[in-house]
C-alpha cells in the first residue's frame, strides 16, 4: 500500500488570540504548537490586538507590525494579510504598499469599520488586486442586526459586481450559512470562508451542492475558535470526495495565493 499524499491543510483565518504571551512571537509560537497537533501546514494571520473595529491609521500600522513581528520567524508556516480600514483610504493604501510591496504580506483583511458595498472600498480593492493580493472581507447575517459598519454577504455581492475580475472571500459565509451560500451563489468571483461559526452539520454539504468545492475555503478563526471545531466541518462532511476535501482544506487557498507568492518569490512547498 502506498502512503496517501499529505493533505496539506492551509488555514485561511487565524488571529493572535486565545493564547497569552508577552510578545507576538510568544503568542504565535503557542498557536503554531496547536496547529502542529492538528496537522495544519500553514496559516494566514491578520489583525493584531486588541481587536479594534475602526482602527486609526496609527493603530493599523501598530497592529500590522504585530503580525509582521509574529511572522518573522515563521515564514515557512504562516503568512499575513494587511488589516485595512475603508474609513482611511489613503492610510490603507499606504499599508498595502508598506506591508505587501515592501513587507511580507500577501493579502488584505477588511473587518467591520465600513460596509463593503461602499464605493470608498474601490481604490483599496483596485490597489490590492493590482498586487494579486488575496482580499478577505468579514461578513455576518445576525438575527438581531449587524453592527453599523458590519457587512453582509449582500454587500459583498455588490462589491463583487463592481470588480468582476477580482477574487473576493466572503468571511464566515455570513455566519447564517444557509442564507450566505444562496446570496453569493451567482457571484462566481466570491469564495466562501468556513471559519468562525458553530460546527453546524450540513454546511459543507450545502456549499458543495450550491457552489462547488472550488469556491470553499477552510479557515478556523483561531484563537476565538478551535482548529478542532472548524476542521470538523470538513472532516465530518458526508460523501466528501478525497479531491474535494483537499481543495477545501488547502488547494483552493493555494490557488488564490499562487500569483502573489510567485510575484514575491515565496515558496509554497511543504
Amino acid at each position: 500500500m502506498t502512503d496517501p499524499a499529505p493533505e496539506r491543510i492551509w488555514d485561511l483565518h487565524c488571529h493572535l488570540s486565545g493564547e497569552t504571551g508577552r510578545t507576538p512571537d510568544e503568542i504565535i509560537a503557542k498557536i503554531i504548537a496547536r496547529a502542529d497537533r492538528m496537522g495544519i501546514e500553514r496559516m494566514a494571520f491578520y489583525m493584531g490586538y486588541p481587536m479594534t473595529a475602526n482602527p486609526s491609521p496609527d493603530e493599523l500600522r501598530r497592529q500590522n507590525d504585530q503580525i509582521i513581528q509574529a511572522l518573522s520567524h515563521w515564514h515557512h508556516r504562516a503568512f499575513g494579510f494587511a488589516y485595512v480600514n475603508p474609513n482611511h483610504v489613503d492610510a490603507s493604501i499606504a499599508e498595502i504598499e508598506r506591508c505587501i510591496d515592501r513587507g511580507p504580506m500577501v493579502g488584505i483583511k477588511l473587518w467591520v469599520a465600513r460596509r463593503c458595498n461602499d464605493a470608498a472600498l474601490d481604490p483599496i480593492i483596485k490597489a490590492a488586486h493590482a498586487r494579486k493580493a488575496v482580499i478577505f472581507q468579514h461578513t455576518w447575517l445576525k438575527a438581531a442586526g449587524n453592527l453599523p459598519g458590519e457587512s453582509s454577504p449582500n454587500d459583498l455581492v455588490e462589491l463583487a459586481a463592481r470588480h468582476p475580475e477580482t477574487p473576493l472571500i466572503c468571511g464566515h459565509t455570513g455566519g447564517d450559512w444557509e442564507r450566505g451560500i444562496r446570496i453569493v451563489r451567482a457571484s462566481p468571483n466570491i469564495s466562501i470562508d468556513l471559519a468562525g461559526s458553530d460546527p453546524t452539520a450540513g454546511f459543507v454539504e450545502m456549499a458543495i451542492r450550491e457552489l462547488g468545492a472550488s469556491r470553499i475555503i477552510y479557515g478556523s478563526d483561531v484563537g476565538g475558535r478551535s482548529f478542532a471545531s472548524q476542521l470538523a466541518k470538513v472532516r465530518s462532511a458526508r460523501s466528501l470526495s478525497d479531491g474535494d476535501r483537499r481543495l477545501i482544506l488547502g488547494g483552493n487557498l493555494r490557488r488564490l495565493l499562487a500569483p502573489i507568492f510567485k510575484a514575491k518569490g515565496m515558496r509554497m512547498d511543504a
Binding site: R34, R37, M38, D198, P199, T200, A201, S226, F227, A228, S229, L231, A232, K233, R235, S236, A237
Partner: peptide, 14 residues
C-alpha cells in the same frame, strides 16, 4: 447531529 460529530475527538487532539 446538530453539530458535526467529529468535533469532540478533534478537540481532545488539540
Amino acid at each position: 447531529p446538530f453539530f458535526c460529530v467529529g468535533a469532540a475527538q478533534l478537540k481532545l487532539q488539540e
